[in-house]
Simulated assay, not measured.
Amino acid sequence: MKTTIESFESIKSEHFSHTETAEYKLELLERIEEKIRTLGSSTRADKPEWEGSHKTIVDKFIIYYFFSPDKQTCFIEYFRHSSQHY
Protein backbone atom coordinates (compact mmCIF):
# COMPACT_ATOMS: atom_id res chain seq x y z
CA MET A 1 0.00 0.00 0.00
CA LYS A 2 1.20 3.51 -0.80
CA THR A 3 2.18 5.84 1.99
CA THR A 4 0.22 9.03 2.50
CA ILE A 5 2.95 11.11 0.89
CA GLU A 6 3.20 8.78 -2.11
CA SER A 7 -0.57 8.90 -2.57
CA PHE A 8 -0.57 12.69 -2.47
CA GLU A 9 2.41 12.99 -4.80
CA SER A 10 0.82 10.62 -7.30
CA ILE A 11 -2.09 12.99 -7.99
CA LYS A 12 -1.88 13.65 -11.72
CA SER A 13 -4.19 14.39 -14.60
CA GLU A 14 -3.77 14.10 -18.33
CA HIS A 15 -6.25 16.97 -18.63
CA PHE A 16 -4.27 19.53 -16.61
CA SER A 17 -0.76 20.92 -16.84
CA HIS A 18 1.90 20.32 -14.23
CA THR A 19 1.35 23.87 -12.92
CA GLU A 20 -2.43 23.44 -12.71
CA THR A 21 -1.97 20.14 -10.89
CA ALA A 22 0.45 21.74 -8.42
CA GLU A 23 -2.06 24.53 -7.77
CA TYR A 24 -4.82 21.96 -7.24
CA LYS A 25 -2.67 20.09 -4.71
CA LEU A 26 -2.05 23.28 -2.73
CA GLU A 27 -5.76 24.11 -2.75
CA LEU A 28 -6.59 20.54 -1.75
CA LEU A 29 -4.20 20.77 1.22
CA GLU A 30 -5.88 24.01 2.29
CA ARG A 31 -9.34 22.41 2.05
CA ILE A 32 -8.19 19.38 4.03
CA GLU A 33 -6.68 21.61 6.71
CA GLU A 34 -9.84 23.71 6.94
CA LYS A 35 -12.12 20.68 7.13
CA ILE A 36 -10.03 19.01 9.83
CA ARG A 37 -9.89 22.29 11.75
CA THR A 38 -13.69 22.54 11.50
CA LEU A 39 -14.41 18.89 12.36
CA GLY A 40 -11.64 18.44 14.90
CA SER A 41 -12.19 15.15 16.66
CA SER A 42 -15.95 15.04 16.14
CA THR A 43 -15.83 12.31 13.47
CA ARG A 44 -14.60 8.88 14.46
CA ALA A 45 -13.14 6.42 11.99
CA ASP A 46 -15.63 3.87 10.74
CA LYS A 47 -13.39 0.79 10.84
CA PRO A 48 -11.92 -1.03 13.86
CA GLU A 49 -8.40 -0.96 12.42
CA TRP A 50 -8.52 2.86 12.58
CA GLU A 51 -9.54 3.03 16.23
CA GLY A 52 -8.43 6.32 17.73
CA SER A 53 -8.46 8.00 14.32
CA HIS A 54 -10.94 10.27 12.58
CA LYS A 55 -12.21 10.18 9.01
CA THR A 56 -13.21 12.85 6.53
CA ILE A 57 -13.69 13.14 2.77
CA VAL A 58 -12.48 16.08 0.67
CA ASP A 59 -12.85 16.10 -3.13
CA LYS A 60 -13.55 12.35 -3.05
CA PHE A 61 -10.29 11.75 -1.17
CA ILE A 62 -10.68 9.60 1.94
CA ILE A 63 -8.55 10.87 4.80
CA TYR A 64 -7.89 9.23 8.17
CA TYR A 65 -6.12 11.38 10.72
CA PHE A 66 -5.29 11.63 14.41
CA PHE A 67 -4.06 14.30 16.79
CA SER A 68 -1.03 14.42 19.02
CA PRO A 69 -1.81 14.03 22.74
CA ASP A 70 -1.67 17.82 23.22
CA LYS A 71 -3.99 18.33 20.17
CA GLN A 72 -1.48 20.75 18.62
CA THR A 73 -0.47 18.54 15.70
CA CYS A 74 -2.61 16.61 13.25
CA PHE A 75 -1.20 13.56 11.48
CA ILE A 76 -2.71 12.26 8.26
CA GLU A 77 -2.15 8.53 8.31
CA TYR A 78 -4.17 7.51 5.25
CA PHE A 79 -5.02 9.35 2.07
CA ARG A 80 -6.45 7.96 -1.17
CA HIS A 81 -9.03 8.76 -3.80
CA SER A 82 -12.27 6.89 -3.28
CA SER A 83 -12.01 5.30 -6.73
CA GLN A 84 -8.58 3.77 -6.00
CA HIS A 85 -8.49 0.14 -4.94
CA TYR A 86 -5.67 -1.58 -3.07
Results as ranks from 00 to 15, higher is better:
Lys12Ser: 13
His15Glu: 09
Phe79His: 00
Thr3Ala: 07
Glu14His: 04
Glu27Met: 13
Glu6Asp: 14
Lys60Tyr: 14
Ser7Phe: 01
Thr73Gly: 04
Lys25Ser: 11
Lys47Asn: 11
Ser82Tyr: 10
Asp59Pro: 14
Ser13Ile: 10
Arg31Leu: 03
Ser53Val: 00
Lys60Ala: 12
Thr38Asn: 09
Ser13Pro: 09
Thr56Glu: 02
Thr73Gln: 15
Gly40Ile: 11
Lys2Asn: 13
Lys55Met: 02
Ser41Ala: 10
Thr4Phe: 03
Ser53Gln: 14
Thr3Phe: 04
Ile63His: 07
Glu51Trp: 11
Leu29Tyr: 09
Thr3Tyr: 04
His15Trp: 04
Tyr65Val: 00
His18Asp: 15
Ser83Asn: 13
Gly40Gln: 12
Lys2Val: 00
Thr38Ile: 06
Thr38Ser: 08
Phe16Glu: 11
His85Ile: 04
Thr38Gly: 02
Ser17Thr: 15
Thr19Trp: 03
Pro69Cys: 02
Arg37Phe: 10
Asp70Met: 08
Ile5Ala: 08
Thr43Glu: 07
Lys60Cys: 14
Thr56Gly: 01
Thr43Val: 15
Thr19Tyr: 10
Tyr78Arg: 05
Glu20Val: 01
Thr3Leu: 03
Glu34Gln: 15
Ile11Gln: 15
Lys55Tyr: 08
Phe67Cys: 00
Phe67Ser: 05
Arg80Ile: 00
Ser17Gly: 13
Ile32Arg: 01
Lys71Ser: 12
Leu26Ser: 15
Glu14Ala: 06
Thr21Trp: 09
Glu34Val: 10
Ser53Leu: 06
Pro69His: 08
Lys25Asn: 13
Lys47Phe: 09
Pro48Met: 01
Thr4Ile: 01
Gln84Phe: 05
Ile63Leu: 05
Val58Thr: 08
Glu34Asp: 14
Leu39Trp: 09
Ser53Glu: 13
Ser10Thr: 08
Phe16Arg: 03
Phe8Ile: 04
Arg80Trp: 00
Leu39Met: 10
Ser10Asn: 11
Glu77Trp: 01
Glu23Asp: 13
Ile5Trp: 05
His15Arg: 06
Phe66Val: 03
Ser83Leu: 13
Arg80Thr: 02
Trp50Thr: 03
Glu9Thr: 03
Glu30Cys: 08
Lys55Ala: 00
Glu34Ser: 12
Asp46Arg: 14
Thr56Met: 09
Glu9Ser: 06
Pro48His: 02
Lys2Pro: 15
Thr73Ala: 12
Gly52Tyr: 07
Thr43Cys: 13
Ser42Leu: 11
Lys55Leu: 07
Phe16Lys: 07
Ala22Met: 14
Thr4His: 01
Ser83Met: 05
Glu34Thr: 07
Thr38Leu: 10
Phe67Leu: 02
Leu29Asp: 14
Lys2Gly: 02
Asp59Thr: 10
Thr38Trp: 04
Phe8Leu: 11
Arg31Trp: 01
Ser13Arg: 03
Arg31Asn: 14
Glu20Gly: 04
His18Cys: 02
Tyr86Ile: 00
Ser83Lys: 05
Glu49Gln: 05
Phe61Pro: 01
Ile57Thr: 15
Gly40Trp: 15
Lys2His: 06
Tyr64Phe: 15
Ser13Ala: 04
Leu26His: 10
Ser68Leu: 10
Tyr24Val: 06
Tyr65Phe: 02
Lys55Gly: 00
Ser68Arg: 12
Pro48Lys: 02
Tyr64Arg: 06
Glu9Lys: 05
Thr38Arg: 10
Tyr78Pro: 00
Ile5Val: 07
Cys74Leu: 10
Arg31Gly: 06
Phe16Asp: 05
Lys12Cys: 07
Lys35Gly: 02
Asp46Cys: 06
Ala45Pro: 05
Ile32Phe: 06
Ser68Cys: 06
Lys35Gln: 15
Tyr78Gly: 05
